[in-house]
Amino acid sequence: MFQSPNHRDSAQNDTLKVLVVDDEPTLRLGFAYALANRSMTVETAATGRHALERIAVVNFDIMILDLRMPELDGSGVIETLRGKGNHLPIVLCSAAFSPNAALRAIRHGVVDFLLKPVRPVDLRQVIDFVMSPECRPLPLAMRSARAGDFAVAIQILETQMNPSQQAIHWLEIFRSVRDLGADLDSTQLEEKVRTSLSVLAFNSPTN
């Protein structure tokens, strides 16, 4: 089963190992600077390929991954990684998500999206949200989804009282992904993802 972030080998070190993958040097610099503190060590990679190389060597706790990159893009990195059975938590970051890319990511347990431009505070919050989820329905449901357990995620969200806009959309999408099964080619689901994209992102303006 998936590794739980709470039971990591590197947990003993008390520092999180973060990999930032972005082809923009300024962003790499900024992300690294924003995250670097006593509890986190940040490594950066400029390309998807370089990222995969580093992951093979270092045991990271979380990866901030840019979607649009030359050569191997974010989707490619996710698929290669999941193909190898690596279930490293990933935060996907982009200026614009295409429904198709978002759907592919969700199906691989990548449910944390950061919409560029990203404020340093968003970055820190999303890492907290992923690594140490609060005991509220949405963070817990997202944790289950990250582990690929959509059924549990749906269950958690369904029992929630007064769900937020974001929770409603996630519930819809988890249901659709569950009902869709292996059939990848669903334009209707893409349509649904597209209309909810602005709400799905962690730093969505509506939240």
Binding site: E24, K116, R119
Partner: peptide, 20 residues
Amino acid sequence: STVSHEIKTPLTGIRMVLHL
């Protein structure tokens, strides 16, 4: 789409730096 990416991406970097 190009504009949103090509302008937004560097802008994101700039914004990040300014925020920092």
